[in-house]
Write a protein that binds this DNA or RNA. Structure first.
Lengths: 204, 204
DNA sequence: TCTTTTCTTGAGCGATCAATCAAAAATTAG
DNA sequence: CTAATTTTTGATTGATCGCTCAAGAAAAGA
């Protein structure tokens, strides 16, 4: 009968998580289209058939790589800031300041995978482009909602334009990712972050 | 002998500038790698051999398309603002406000070609990626020099961090391009532009 | 007219793309 | 042990990539 038993059969000879990590780095550096299956299998140390058996196809692997990226230190700091910081200002301040540190960090590819990995896609891969775009827009909505909560809790003035502030922060963060990929360092980006923060309508 | 006579031989049957304009639109929309030579010949209404005879190869056509883009209304407004506005603040204000209008304009592809057309490139096309990156960094240096001139002319305070201001403006503009490609409208981007402008150390 | 030059046409080049297949290998169940 | 199940291997698929070539067509010069 149909089996689906994980313990049966020949065991996988490679570390699935490690292979996924290699895929994350490649997609992060070069993006979806510019990373070939050949590049992936070489970096993962496996053969095409093993890749397709373990991850489906290239698009499925990419989506899983995006999820894995979000679980990394450098890929999850924005979501973490939103969850952990108590006030709207502290959320935004941590986002911008950590972006200035993380995006140019030479221990991994520069910038943000979600922002830069599917900018140039062919017509048959539009799905991948919209997948990341939806993710970015969802993050923008989440930030706006977080700021609105801050407004209700009194750490943002009632007259503040929450939508504009969220768009502004998202714009600066996306620009910082691009700047980091263009070679900007953490000191330069830190000054950009402080300038952006100076527009904030603080209560203190 | 070697001829190089332009009037001799069979005349070209297509409008070279119009064909280049079609290439600009394709590269602007999809980027360098995601635009195939087949896409180009179809949009230009010519055959591969004609394209290669008229423009060299795909990379040369792209570089020429970037130059043509810079001569368009939507592709040259940043340089024009730097040349035409009298003070540092007016330069930056016009840059940001026009970006908010131009980048989401539905009469052409969203955002800036220079910013988004070579984000994801394969290893053998790194040359194209660095070509646009160098262009962006040259624009950043030019803005910084324009601001420094403004500082010398007294329309920026002596204590102002010119480098940080230039980086900040470049970051916001690049972020606005990305936001426009993600679907942001001119009203939304205009509010972002005003927020960014509010950090400016004005003398008035 | 006849030659020379340049462009267009249509076919097709080798390389690479994502993806697949059959067979061998490695495991568990009985 | 044998049978069933799953993965790995190595070769290979059809499609598309950027690009080129030979032949024909359209112009100018002599």
């Amino acid at each position: 009968m149909l089996a689906m038993d994980k313990t049966r059969g020949r065991p996988r000879t490679f570390d699935r998580e490690a292979a996924l990590g290699s895929a994350v780095l490649l997609f992060w550096e070069h993006g979806f289209e510019a990373t070939s299956v050949g590049d992936l299998t070489q970096a993962m140390g496996i053969r095409p058939a093993s890749l397709y058996a373990a991850f489906g196809d290239k698009k499925a692997l990419f989506k899983e790589a995006v999820e894995a990226y979000g679980r990394t230190e450098a890929g999850g700091f924005l979501a973490r800031a939103m969850e952990e910081e108590p006030t709207a200002y502290q959320v935004v301040a941590r986002m911008l300041r950590e972006a200035a540190q993380v995006y140019p960090d030479p221990s991994h590819p520069a910038g943000c995978l979600t922002i830069s990995a599917a900018t140039n896609v062919t017509v048959q891969d539009v799905e991948i482009g919209t997948f990341l775009r939806d993710l970015r827009n969802a993050n923008l909505v989440a930030l706006e909602e977080r700021l609105r909560r801050g407004q209700e809790e009194g750490d943002l003035p009632e007259g503040a334009d929450v939508g504009a502030l969220a768009s502004f922060v998202a714009t600066v963060i996306q620009g910082m990712s691009q700047q980091a990929r263009d070679g900007a360092g953490s000191a330069e980006l830190a000054r950009v972050a402080e300038l952006a923060l100076s527009v904030w309508p603080r209560s203190t």
